[in-house]
């Protein structure tokens, strides 16, 4: 334990009686230790004097207002989370259905000429069929 730690313990009264007496004796006989003690006490006093003891006025009212504001926004956040949950699952289901239909169409292969037409389930498109559709 160095002298500074010893002085802090002495200041706390956190030393056995004989060590307390030993420090007091040293403080009387050692000017350097005495100066260090006064320095420690001086800084401890300044720290106490400079300590904030409150925030700006009406702090408690601001805390309660913020608390109530966050409480009132909680149901909205809950609904947002629920919608996100539902949309994510609906999106996955749509993708699965589309893949299944695509696979079915590709395996059947009875519609269009190209692979894309088959996957999409599109009939073969020719100029004649387009004109026929147009009337």
């Amino acid at each position: 334990m160095d002298d500074r730690e010893l002085l802090i313990r002495y200041r706390d009264g956190d030393l056995p009686d004989e060590e307390m007496a030993g420090v007091e004796e040293r403080l009387r006989s050692e000017p350097e230790l005495r100066a260090r003690w006064e320095s420690l006490e001086g800084i401890a006093t300044l720290l106490q004097q400079g300590a904030a003891r409150s925030f700006d006025p009406f702090f408690a009212a601001r805390v309660v207002a913020r608390l109530r504001k966050s409480d009132s926004s909680a149901p909205v956040e809950g609904m947002y989370e629920a919608l996100r949950w539902i949309f994510a699952r609906v999106a996955v289901a749509c993708v699965v259905v589309m893949l299944a239909l695509g696979a079915y169409s590709a395996l059947e292969g009875g519609y269009g000429g190209s692979m894309v037409d088959s996957v999409m389930g599109l009939p073969e498109a020719t100029l004649e069929t387009a004109l026929a559709l147009g009337g």
């Binding site: 300590a51 904030a52 003891r53 409150s54 925030f55 702090f59 408690a60 805390v63 309660v64």
Partner: peptide, 22 residues
Amino acid sequence: DDRAFRDLVERHEPRVAATVVG
């Protein structure tokens, strides 16, 4: 009871202010 919580805040504000501002 908001009033009770507000009393708690006012009671412990000095300690919290000293800690946080420190």
